[in-house]
Simulated assay, not measured.
Amino acid sequence: MRKMYICTDSVTGIFSAVYEAWKSGRDSDTCGIVFRGKVEQELFCEYCEIEESERKALAVEKMILRHLGERAYWDIYHAALSEREEKGNAILGAMLEARRIPDSTKIMDHLSHPMVEKVFEMSRSVDGEAHQLKGFLRFRELEGGILFAEITPKNRVLTCLAPHFSDRLPTENWMIYDKNHREIALHEAGKRWVLASDDTLDFEKTRNISEAERHFSELWKGFCRTISIEERSNPRCQRQHLPLWYRVNMTEFDAS
């Protein structure tokens, strides 16, 4: 009978499930991971709610870094941030496969294995979206001087974006709000960034932008209109470089 470990859709949840599956000594054919609230029960499967903890997640993290290497760790970590529901099984399957090959640090070269291939694809998708958002993300200054940005990503990329902006804006107070996953990256000037749920966010205050922000927003939109050449407009090419779902939160596409 196949044993399915039920966890939350988070890095801590997935790594805690991997911890339990690894400890059981089962192979990928006899165990799997499903997410709480998305369980579709199948015949001949035993479902087990796991106890999630930072201790288990850290133990798995250390194991990956020690036995699979840093490259595999980042691929697995990025895959855990993916929007795809099969990511738990893919990560578990790739790690169990690493246990079978002579050199576990070469696991991400085994793309012929379906689970390793999925981890690689999901990692590349997450990394690509995070890379694009580093350029497409737009901060606006609120009345209190805090820089605030909204994003609507497909994947959970906040933990990929926050270190980037923490390095570039270390002396600023800023927030990045992921509307799709209801999470916020918070950074206080001179301190480390933290991740929080949107329960802590006062949405009313995020609509009150400063006068300077209002002025520079108009200047920026005017500049973008001025440099455009109508005769050379190519919407299809523009969408390849800047997909439509990014434009919702970009100043230059705000009609207000």
Rank of each mutant, 00 (worst) to 15 (best):
Q132H: 11
Q132P: 02
Q132S: 11
L133S: 05
K134A: 09
G135L: 06
L137T: 07
L137G: 03
L137P: 03
L137A: 04
F139L: 05
R140G: 03
R140P: 01
L142W: 03
L142D: 04
L142R: 09
E143A: 06
E143L: 01
E143D: 07
G144Y: 09
F148C: 14
A149S: 08
T152S: 13
P153F: 08
P153S: 12
K154M: 07
R156M: 13
V157S: 07
V157H: 04
V157T: 13
V157A: 11
L158H: 02
L158D: 00
T159K: 01
C160Q: 14
C160W: 01
P163A: 06
F165P: 00
F165A: 00
S166E: 15
P170V: 10
E172T: 06
E172Y: 05
W174G: 07
M175T: 06
M175V: 07
M175N: 06
I176P: 00
D178I: 02
K179M: 08
K179E: 08
K179L: 10
K179C: 03
N180L: 10
H181E: 09
E183P: 00
E183Y: 02
E183I: 04
E183V: 06
I184N: 02
I184M: 11
E188W: 07
G190L: 05
G190N: 09
G190R: 09
W193A: 08
W193F: 15
L195H: 02
L195S: 02
A196L: 08
S197N: 10
D198W: 01
D199K: 01
F203A: 11
E204Y: 10
K205F: 01
T206N: 05
T206V: 13
R207A: 10
R207T: 13
N208C: 12
I209K: 12
S210N: 09
E213L: 02
R214Y: 05
H215G: 04
F216P: 03
F216S: 07
L219T: 13
W220I: 13
W220E: 02
G222I: 05
C224S: 13
C224R: 10
R225Q: 10
R225A: 11
I227V: 15
I227K: 14
S228C: 09
S228D: 15
E231A: 15
E231T: 14
E231N: 11
S233F: 12
N234I: 04
P235F: 02
